[in-house]
């Protein structure tokens, strides 16, 4: 009965490994456009926020050498003030607009900072998972009186890193203990990605959904319907 008062916390981890996305974009069979994918994710995020006013959200970019919050931004962040700079059009809902602007800006920043040398084909999924869980834990602490339903959604394209195996599994067990489901949307084609071994385990153990996206243009559909 109490489910209506729960706070739903969705943490989205987006794999932003440039090498993997470049490979996918140049795939002759099924090219994949990063911007299109981000657009669809943003709409999904808007849908999540629109369901309930109290719904919480965090977005983390899992890059080649670091994991970084795209949203929410730290309150002292000078960039947060800059966010106000673009005028909010009258047809945009304030919260949607803030999130969308913030994410796009942070992503641009991330891309600008990355150097060619970084471009190894790897992604800090384990780091992002632990970052996500730290944040979930913080939200739970801040709302001790109400029940927080947490979920992690991983949008993944990079191949597994064997060296991250132990770290990833530890994160998965921690998520299981904290009753956090990990859902995974995985892009893979013949020329990029490859089979992931860790992420199916993550979904399986935590009771989430693992989905290989057969048709990337329909990502939004999968996100909205397969909840």
């Amino acid at each position: 009965m109490n489910a209506e008062d729960d706070i739903n916390l969705l943490t989205v981890i987006v794999d932003t490994n440039p090498a993997a996305w470049a490979a996918a974009a140049n795939d002759p069979e099924r090219p994949l456009d990063f911007i299109k994918i981000i657009e669809q994710i943003l709409i999904f995020i808007n849908a999540h926020l629109s369901l309930k006013f109290d719904n919480e959200l965090a977005i983390i970019a899992s890059h080649t050498n670091q994991s970084r919050f795209l949203y929410p931004l730290p309150p002292t962040d000078p960039e947060a003030a800059l966010l106000d700079a673009p005028k909010k059009p009258a047809n945009a809902y304030k919260q949607f607009f803030d999130v969308d602007q913030g994410v796009v800006m942070k992503l641009k920043e991330l891309v600008a900072e990355s150097k060619e040398a970084d471009e190894e084909n790897k992604s800090m999924i384990a780091g992002s998972l632990s970052l996500a869980q730290s944040y979930i834990n913080r939200v739970k602490r801040a709302n001790e009186n109400s029940n927080v339903q947490s979920r992690i959604l991983v949008i993944s394209i990079s191949p597994d890193l064997p060296s991250q195996y132990i770290a990833t599994m530890n994160c998965i067990f921690a998520a299981q203990k904290g009753a956090t489901r990990i859902d995974v949307c995985r892009f893979q084609g013949r020329n990029y990605g490859g089979d992931s071994v860790f992420l199916p385990q993550a979904s399986h153990i935590t009771g989430g959904i693992f989905l290989e996206i057969p048709e990337p243009r329909n990502l939004l559909q999968y996100l909205l319907v397969r909840r």
Partner: peptide, 10 residues
């Protein structure tokens, strides 16, 4: 959701 249209609802 997609921020389209030219209404002034907000």
């Amino acid at each position: 959701l997609v921020g389209g249209g030219n209404h002034v609802s907000f």
